[in-house]
């Protein structure tokens, strides 16, 4: 039976986030917490395949107990089981420590109930690093397909998957053996309006809370702040870009405008790069 695992993160809704101009920190007060949108789309894809292949979906997350709201939402969206890694000692983790903890948890889930395919969002909208998914794949030694826009086929008999991934130039179609890990763009699947039985199930569901006490053992120096070599040097708001120069082509003429644009690109040393993209 098909078993998908989805890693999700709860994030502040950055569509209405503010930065404290004095401290440079995020103002979290009054900002609603949501499921990271890329993760929600990844979950939707996992649930689509669960329904096609009559399988099941496990979601995992790491964070404070308030993350249970988002894990319940994952059940509403069609997940069958939700595990939250929650322990004060996990706090302050960077992408290295986070990928360590998630990989250990996935290993534990996998050994009980083998996982065929792991879904991550391509990145979280608060940190925007896009590092945790790939980090987990490396730790588990699973093949990875990043920026996936479509899972075209899953063949459980052959243990292969065909995934379309988006690059700046074109769409690549990748076939890879299972178990594998994909990180997903929003196009991977639309978030469904959950059936009422799934919603009711989620309202009565309590996610499993895993802590340092078990069931998985973690190396103390690889978790939380101790396991996180990243140092945040400074946070702040980037200056607003200055408005560009505007040229009225009707007054200046098209060819004169083009000459001017090429000249400016040459002066700035970016002409080759600019032309490099044109065919």
């Amino acid at each position: 039976m098909f078993h998908a695992l989805v890693a999700i993160k709860q994030v502040p809704d950055t569509t209405n986030i503010r930065i404290d101009p004095d401290t440079g920190n995020l103002v979290r007060e009054g900002v609603p917490a949501i499921m990271n949108p890329y993760d929600a789309h990844a979950l939707a894809a996992a649930v689509e395949w669960k329904r096609k292949l009559n399988g099941r979906v496990t979601v995992i997350s790491m964070g404070p107990p308030s993350f249970t709201t988002t894990l319940r939402e994952a059940i509403e969206l069609g997940a069958d089981r939700a595990i939250l890694l929650s322990d004060r000692k996990f706090a302050g983790a960077d992408t290295l420590a986070t990928s360590y903890v998630l990989a250990e948890v996935i290993r534990a889930v996998h050994s009980d109930d083998p996982v065929d395919l792991i879904f991550f969002g391509k990145q979280a909208i608060d940190g925007d690093t896009a590092q945790v998914g790939p980090g987990v794949a490396v730790r588990l030694d699973f093949p990875i397909v990043t920026y996936a826009v479509n899972v075209r086929a899953i063949d459980l008999n052959e243990a292969t998957i065909v995934v379309e991934r988006k690059t700046e130039r074109w769409t690549e179609v990748v076939e890879t053996p299972l178990p594998a890990l994909v990180t997903c763009e929003k196009e991977i699947a639309a978030i469904p309006f959950a059936p009422l039985p799934d919603l009711i199930k989620s309202l009565r569901y309590d996610p499993e809370i895993w802590t340092l006490a078990g069931p998985v053992e973690f190396a103390a120096d690889e978790i939380g702040v101790r396991g996180s070599p990243t140092i945040v040097y400074q946070m702040g708001t980037p200056p607003l870009p200055e408005a560009g120069e505007k040229i009225n082509t009707r007054e200046a003429g098209v060819s004169a405008t083009l000459d001017l644009v090429f000249k400016k690109a040459e002066d700035a040393g970016v002409l080759d790069a600019m032309l490099g993209g044109a065919q």
């Binding site: 309006f193 959950a194 059936p195 009422l196 039985p197 919603l199 009711i200 309202l203 009565r204």
Partner: peptide, 28 residues
Amino acid sequence: LLIPKTTVVDFLRKQTGEVVGVVTDRPQ
């Protein structure tokens, strides 16, 4: 049990008209 994000759009009724439940906007 509070069931949020769900709109009741109609009633389930017996043939004789008695109300025996509701229909919401969600699948199933």
